[in-house]
């Protein structure tokens, strides 16, 4: 399969990439290429210009600051999977993306810019309350993950804006986990649930839960959170809270050739319960 013809430029800096992209009417940003190149080959994307970020060293790497960890947009999933600095839910999910070869090339920024509903990272970033840092012609800004993902393959990135890094808060008393049911060939999520929980005295003090893969965009599981917040953590309360995910998934559950909407609904509570149990076990 051949992509349609395009021009190619390798940006030396984020500023140059913003300039090149915003001054062109049909440009696309290339990071690891593991979402974009398949789309180019299928001619789902036909840009006239590719602006390659691949050599901008400043966009790579994971660093810890006071209470937060910052992940450069060009950091690969392999690097995230191997990181001890990231919350467990992120490194765990990163290790379940695609396969080793895909994780060696696929990047954090490319993944979330693509906003594939079957992707794992949007779910994780919503559960972690991540801030997506971007840069455009109007300067830098930070977008909360809750607001970044707008719809199927749609983000709140403005024309010419480039993701530079993702920042997540890290609190040592939190336990987190990611559980997914996936397509066995592509490893894309049929349903993935990410949970982060803080427990004190056996009671759930803080909780964020998100689900993806079964809805047009990853969603925050507010009903699950409300059902477990302030409750003692045990199998009964977890099962009860997990069942509330049906209300969070709502009416827009995806059915496709891999899994029907009914199947996804039927497994949702169980997958949510597993994610909650694993997160709770790590919080203790």
């Amino acid at each position: 399969m051949y992509p349609s013809k395009f021009d190619y430029v390798r940006a030396q800096s984020v500023e140059e990439a913003v300039e090149r992209t915003s001054s062109h009417s049909n440009a696309k940003i290339l990071a690891g290429g593991h979402s974009l190149i398949p789309a180019l080959k299928l001619r789902l994307a036909q840009p006239d210009l590719l602006v390659d970020l691949g050599r901008i060293a400043a966009l790579k790497g994971i660093s810890r600051h006071n209470g937060t960890v910052s992940v450069g947009a060009l950091t690969t999933h392999a690097a995230c999977a191997a990181s001890d600095d990231l919350p467990k839910v992120w490194s765990e999910a990163a290790g379940l993306i695609g396969d080793p070869q895909v994780r060696n090339r696929g990047t954090v920024g490319g993944n979330i810019a693509h906003a594939d509903p079957a992707s794992d990272l949007p779910t994780v970033l919503i559960a972690l309350g991540a801030q997506i840092h971007v840069q455009g012609t109007a300067g830098p800004r930070a977008i909360p993950a809750d607001e970044f993902f707008v719809d199927l393959f749609t983000t709140s990135l403005e024309e010419g804006e480039i993701i530079t890094r993702v920042e997540v808060p890290v609190e040592s008393n939190q336990g987190s986990a990611y559980t997914k049911v996936f397509n066995p060939a592509s490893r894309y999520a049929i349903l993935g649930v990410a949970a982060q929980v803080a427990i004190a005295g056996g009671v759930c003090r803080q909780l964020r839960v998100a689900a993806g893969g079964s809805t047009p965009k990853a969603i925050r599981a507010h009903h699950v959170e409300a059902a477990l917040q302030g409750q003692p953590i045990n199998d009964t309360t977890i099962q009860h809270a997990a069942a509330a995910i049906a209300d969070d998934l709502g009416e827009e559950v995806i059915g496709d050739m891999y899994a029907s909407a009914a199947y996804r609904r039927s497994i949702a509570a169980q997958i949510a319960a597993r994610a909650l149990s694993a997160a709770a076990a790590r919080a203790r």
Binding site: Y8, R10, L30, G33, H34, I37, P38, L50, D52, G54, A78, P100, Q101, V102, N104, R105
Partner: peptide, 19 residues
């Protein structure tokens, strides 16, 4: 199509030659 690119196993059907 797996090859080693700068010491990492990658799928060369999903990399552009220019990269």
């Amino acid at each position: 199509c797996t090859i080693h690119l700068d010491g990492q196993a990658v799928k060369s059907c999903t990399v552009l030659a220019v990269q």
